[in-house]
Simulated scan of single mutants.
Amino acid sequence: MEIAGSVALVTGAGSGLGAATARHLSGLGARVAVLDFDLPRASHVAQEIGGLAVQADVADEPAVAAAFAQVAAAFGAPRFVVNCAGIGTAARILGREGKLSVAAFARTLQVNLLGTYTVMSHAARAMEGLAPLGPDGARGVIVNTASVAWQDGQIGQAAYAASKGGVVSMTLPAARELARFGIRVATIAPGMFETAMTDGLPPDVLATITANIPFPPRLGQAGEYAMLVEQIIRNPLLNGTTIRLDGAVRLPPR
């Protein structure tokens, strides 16, 4: 699908993978809505790219509905929606002194899984009303974000791995269901990427983290994630699938 002149909405776009995706799609000519829980961060990115800053907690369905209405009023319905919003948790099922992590598990699923589903649902409703394009009658593309932890979950990642595994499991049935509207759904499962958390790490710690990455032997860059989003949008046969973006890494148990 043609990106220039189209409307895109990216969640979690105030930083990291989402911000890189918003900048990349804007650079390709899209009008981008920058959605984030942190409005100042969203505003900073939106101002940089001439986009629209939108504040919402993706786990809050009324807030997501209001966000889509705001985007529609300003730009029109989005043809591309990229779900980058999420939280990372590290908590053992049974911690020290018998401490449980049930609340953390519930919150992680609420944001990462239910939040993705909620945004995807509103995206589908918005895209359904768009005019079909091209010989295939395409109306839109939804890209969700999982993690290699879906398959390689480490100790302490039960909640995170479960939430991302749920995102992967939704991909095919969502693509099959939305096919009748000309809407494609795909998921990216990133490996070890440069984030705000890794920026301040000493060289020896970074070396330990990257030791298991076959090639290239380094952390992924947010722009590389954004490149794959572009490729999913442009390639009409990328549908109902999950793509690992990880340099062939397989995470060890800890």
Rank of each mutant, 00 (worst) to 15 (best):
E48Q: 13
A63P: 15
P135G: 09
R176F: 07
R79Y: 05
L251M: 14
L114V: 12
N212T: 15
P132K: 01
L201F: 15
I49K: 01
M120F: 07
A123V: 02
R96A: 06
E177F: 07
Q151D: 11
G191D: 04
T171A: 08
P253V: 14
T11I: 05
R234Q: 08
E2V: 11
G16F: 11
G247L: 08
A103L: 12
A19H: 05
A8M: 04
T208L: 14
F75T: 00
A91H: 07
P203I: 11
N239I: 07
Q154M: 14
G191Q: 03
I49D: 10
V32N: 00
T195Y: 02
T198W: 13
A123R: 00
D136R: 14
E48N: 03
M170Q: 07
T116E: 04
P202C: 08
L114A: 12
E48L: 05
A131W: 11
Q70E: 14
T89A: 15
A248Y: 07
A149P: 02
L238G: 02
Y117K: 05
A30F: 03
N235G: 13
P62N: 02
L28W: 04
I49A: 10
C84F: 07
G5P: 08
G98L: 06
L238M: 14
A59D: 01
N144R: 01
L109I: 09
H44Q: 13
T116H: 06
V249Q: 09
Y117V: 13
D199R: 15
T210Q: 03
L178F: 13
G223P: 06
A56F: 03
G137L: 02
Q47A: 15
V143A: 01
A179R: 12
M170I: 03
T116P: 03
A33K: 00
L130F: 10
A106T: 15
G200D: 09
E224Y: 10
V64L: 06
A59N: 03
Q231K: 15
A189D: 01
R107S: 12
R31E: 04
I188V: 09
A59I: 05
G137F: 09
A33Q: 00
T21V: 11
H44G: 08
H24W: 06
P132T: 06
A131G: 03
T89C: 11
V229Y: 04
V32F: 03
Q47K: 15
R254G: 10
R107K: 14
D136L: 14
D199S: 15
E128W: 12
S6Y: 00
S6P: 06
I142Y: 01
L238A: 13
T198I: 03
R139E: 05
R41N: 13
Y117L: 14
F215T: 11
P202D: 06
G76T: 08
Q110S: 14
Q157D: 11
Q157R: 10
N235T: 15
A19C: 05
Y117T: 10
V111P: 00
I243F: 10
Q70W: 03
A77S: 13
R176W: 07
A186G: 07
R125Q: 13
P216I: 09
A211N: 13
G115Q: 02
F80W: 08
A226G: 04
T89M: 15
D152L: 12
L237H: 14
V111Y: 01
A33V: 08
E177C: 02
L219W: 08
